[in-house]
Design a protein around this nucleic acid. Structure first.
Length: 813
RNA sequence: GCUGAGGUGGCGGAAUUGGCAUACGCGCACGCUUGAGGUGCGUGUCCUUAAUCUGGAUGCGGGUUCAAGUCCCGCUCUCAGCACCA
């Protein structure tokens, strides 16, 4: 028999799976559920290898647990709002709706050819009013809870995307989507109080045992909690106090100047007292013009003294100068610092430049000087009056309490995490369901008027204004409270809102009355396995966790965390390069599927390495997987042939033992450790063993038992060919719904074991002994072993170590 | 700079958690099959070696141990994230 006809087989089973609805899910009380979720995709046009890997990993798990008897939810959908659609509209004069729909149709077709075990009846699309109605509804619920607010703020603006961006979406001053430099501008915007949950987002990490450590660390850094003290500095000749935040209160006696951020309000408030205000203003404008990148990359510290302003160090009562400098950020803590040049390198550099005194407060054992650089380590306090001699670690708390008692400061915690800016000045997103009324202020749209439909007739100007503003019909509305003429909000929501709750909609995707039924959500949630790229560590995965906690506090769901286990799959590269359209190095999964079939493509992508690791695509590697599937295919005829020679009892029991070992290994590698590569290699070993065994098949069906096991074990990896062989073997049922094979520990039980014998740490031989043997009996066997005894000739045994069933280690000289 | 993860053949990667390093696959070499090529099958493939002797190899250097890829100390390189966060 020649190689198998994968095209025919794959089409056949994909059709059957859909028609028979075997992968459609229903809540079954009492049956253990398994919610398997691959991150849904943005419909950019076509699926690439990264998608293919993502879905293949999810599919292995969904299929495995289905065979293990669990009730599976394995849904699929589209994260369909977003900028590319709108940019395509401006560029190619195609409506975003049309563009998106076309792409989804194309990608759905492609996705169906992958044969993933999705429940297609639950497919969702976020740009569908039946979906975004509920995004709006949830938005209003959050508004009513006081979690959404408007404020004028210094926000990130991307002039290429023509919209504001959340902090998470700006990396190093660069827009996450288009890689343009962003600017800071002042705008009135919509925010969600994610900071209310900052503490819980951190403490919740302890429940996320099934998450990669890397993601937890990244989130922790992003949330950035730090403990410290807020201290009020009196400004001489003014009733104004200046608030600073410090994590090192013990260095208070070494504060020799104060620095406020150029954007700090206080400068404006005390402007009449600043003698060189013109020059200060000049500096402020200069630093405003510097982009984020310049401020960060140019480590040379600049700044200007506020002449005529002095602060008083509350500990030393000394008058100290006040500066403004852009090495202090306006956006963190109070936007002002107390500078301790002796023990902070940044302050040290600034002090050196400006000729400010440097007073040493912490002395270490070496009594190292602070002339060359700041000393940032621990030590004993000096020059600190009553606190002299205390160790700095202990002094932190002692001084904090003293500060509180003296009433010029209090202990606080600060977060780097800022509130989530959720409004966008773009068209292709969920309309924010709010109304501006001159009398009533900001009023939410009534439930009965939802959804606020995104109008289709819009001019895409590409100008920096919300496109919805151009639609007068959309704009004019009656106020739901006073019924007077009012205007609609024209900003749309950040698409990360759509993706913050889609996993809940999957649990009840067709409900027209509520966003989701609580009972259904509580049946399926939390997601047992989430699979996606690590690039979402500090965006989607923080937003979703936050959103879920709000849902919990609204009594919509009952758990604390939405995703129990997270698998971050590695990228698929070509010659080490990220595949991208601009580089023109995209390997299209369609092409591979055409050449080898889906089963082979899946097998290769899963076999090449652990799913978390980056995978470099190679045609060479895929050949091996193709060969392996063919070897299994060819075995069908071989196991069906009756041979003349009888199989020996030992051969039969040997191969059965290998089979049970393989079942055990695959079960653990798939179910527990998600090491699909080693699972597959152990099945390869079993197939190799069966090939070696094939010479004597007159064996009461032993080879058939082994063969069937191979097919069952391969089903999560190569489902199409396994269904086909299963049918050829005479079964009427789907192998996809067949029970996963069990292994029998009794068969695995060994009675004899091969023990390596080490002499002075080097392997010198092996002996086979009964597993029951004690040291005395093992010694007897060794004494009878000529080869080993040769090494021990004329030697004195000083140590004899026998680790039962593992190893023998002899020390002799 | 800080944080985290890593470094094992020509390559992708294994190693039951301290117990036979290099499983499985790719590649390569040789043989068989074939008119030839491909496929398929078989054998071999870390270095040293005539050898199945003997040594030596898991980034480098040291340590603990009967025994170290795995544990400890010190370097070094790579990748990822954050980056003036007071």
């Amino acid at each position: 028999m020649l190689s198998y006809d994968y095209t025919k087989i794959e089409k056949k089973w994909q059709k059957k799976w859909i028609e028979s609805k075997i992968f459609e899910s229903k809540e079954v009380q009492g049956k253990e559920k398994y919610y398997c979720l691959s991150m849904f995709s943005y419909p950019s046009g076509n699926l690439h290898m990264g998608h293919f890997r993502n879905y293949s990993i999810g599919d292995v798990l969904a299929r495995f647990y289905k065979m293990k008897g669990k009730n599976i939810l394995h849904p699929v959908g589209w994260d369909a709002f977003g900028l590319p659609a709108e940019n395509a509209a401006i560029k190619n004069n195609i409506h975003p709706f049309k563009w998106t729909k076309r792409n989804i149709n194309c990608m759905r077709k492609q996705l169906k050819s992958f044969g993933i075990s999705y429940d297609w009846s639950r497919e969702i699309t976020t740009c569908d009013p039946r979906y975004y109605k509920w995004s709006q509804w949830l938005f209003i619920k959050m508004w009513q809870k006081g979690l959404i607010f408007r404020k004028n703020a210094n926000v990130n603006w991307c002039s290429s995307c023509n919209t504001v961006l959340a902090n998470e979406q700006v990396l190093n001053g660069i827009c996450w989507r288009c890689s343009n430099r962003t600017e800071h501008i002042n705008l009135e915007q919509w925010f969600i109080k994610i900071t209310n949950y900052a503490d819980e987002l951190l403490s919740g990490h302890k429940y996320l045992i099934g998450w990669p450590k890397q993601v937890i660390v990244m989130q922790k850094d992003w949330i950035g909690k730090s403990f410290g003290v807020e201290i009020n500095f009196t400004l001489s000749g003014s009733d104004k106090k200046l608030k600073v935040f410090t994590t090192k209160p013990e260095t208070l006696f070494g504060v020799t100047f104060i620095v406020v951020a150029p954007e700090n309000e206080i400068i404006n408030e005390i402007s009449t007292r600043i003698k060189n205000y013109d020059k200060v203003l000049e500096y402020i404008n200069m630093s405003k013009e510097k982009s984020n990148i310049d401020r960060v990359s140019c480590r040379q510290k600049t700044g200007i003294k506020l002449e005529g302003i002095m602060a008083i160090n509350p500990a030393t009562k000394k008058r100290i100068p006040v500066f403004t400098a852009d090495y202090v950020l306006s956006t963190y803590a109070t936007g002002a610092i107390m500078a301790v040049p002796a023990h902070d390198q940044r302050d040290w550099e600034f002090a050196k430049k400006k000729g400010i005194p440097i007073i040493k407060i912490i002395a270490n054992e070496d009594n190292s000087s602070v002339d060359k650089c700041a000393y940032e380590g621990e030590g004993i306090l000096i020059n600190s009056k009553q606190f002299d001699g205390i160790r700095s670690i202990e002094a932190s708390n002692i001084v904090s309490e003293w500060i509180e008692k003296q009433n010029f400061g209090k202990k606080t915690t600060n977060f780097k995490l800022k509130d989530w800016l959720i409004s966008r000045q773009r068209y292709w997103g969920t309309p924010i369901p709010m109304i501006h009324c001159k009398i009533c202020g900001v009023v939410p749209v009534l439930d009965k008027d939802l959804p606020v439909i995104l109008p289709k007739n819009i001019n895409f100007t590409g100008k920096s204004e919300s496109p919805l503003k151009s639609n007068k019909v959309f704009l004019s509305v009656k106020c739901p409270q006073c019924n007077m003429d009012a205007t609609r909000e024209t900003d749309t929501m950040d698409t990360f809102i759509d993706s913050s709750w889609y996993y809940l909609r999957y649990c009840d995707a067709r409900n027209m009355n509520v966003a989701f039924d609580t009972a259904k959500v509580n049946y399926w949630m939390p997601v047992d396995q989430y699979i996606g790229g690590i690039e979402h560590a500090c965006m989607h995965l923080i937003y979703s966790r936050f959103w879920y906690k709000v849902m919990r506090d609204l009594n919509f769901v009952k758990h604390d965390e939405p995703f129990v286990n997270l698998l971050t799959q590695g990228m698929v590269t070509l010659n080490g390069n990220v595949m991208s359209k601009s580089k023109g190095n995209i390997v299209n999964p369609d092409k591979i599927i055409k050449k080898y079939g889906v089963d082979t493509a899946r097998l290769f992508i899963l076999f090449s390495g652990p799913p978390q690791k980056q995978l470099d695509w190679s045609e060479k590697g895929i050949e091996g997987c193709w060969k392996f599937i063919n070897r299994i295919w060819l075995l069908f005829d071989m196991v069906n042939k009756k041979a003349e020679i009888k199989a020996s009892e030992k051969d039969k029991s040997d191969i059965l033992k290998i089979m049970h070992q393989t079942i055990k290994k695959v079960t653990i590698n798939v179910g527990k450790t998600a090491r699909f590569n080693t699972a597959i290699s152990s099945i390869m070993e079993l197939v190799n063993a069966l090939y070696r065994y094939k010479h004597h098949l007159n064996d009461n069906g032993v080879s058939m038992i082994v063969y069937k096991t191979v097919i069952l074990l391969m089903t999560p990896f190569t489902p199409h060919v396994c269904e086909e062989i299963w049918e050829m073997l005479g079964y009427n049922e789907y192998i996809s719904t067949h029970m996963w094979p069990n292994y029998n520990e009794n068969v695995l039980k060994k009675y004899y074991v091969e023990l390596p014998v080490q002499i002075n740490g080097k392997l010198k031989g092996k002996i086979t002994v009964s597993m029951k043997y004690d040291e005395y009996e093992v010694k007897k066997v060794i004494n009878a072993n000529e080869k080993i005894m040769l090494y021990l000739k004329n030697k004195h045994i000083t140590k004899f170590i026998y680790i039962k069933n593992k190893i023998i280690s002899i020390v002799a000289n």
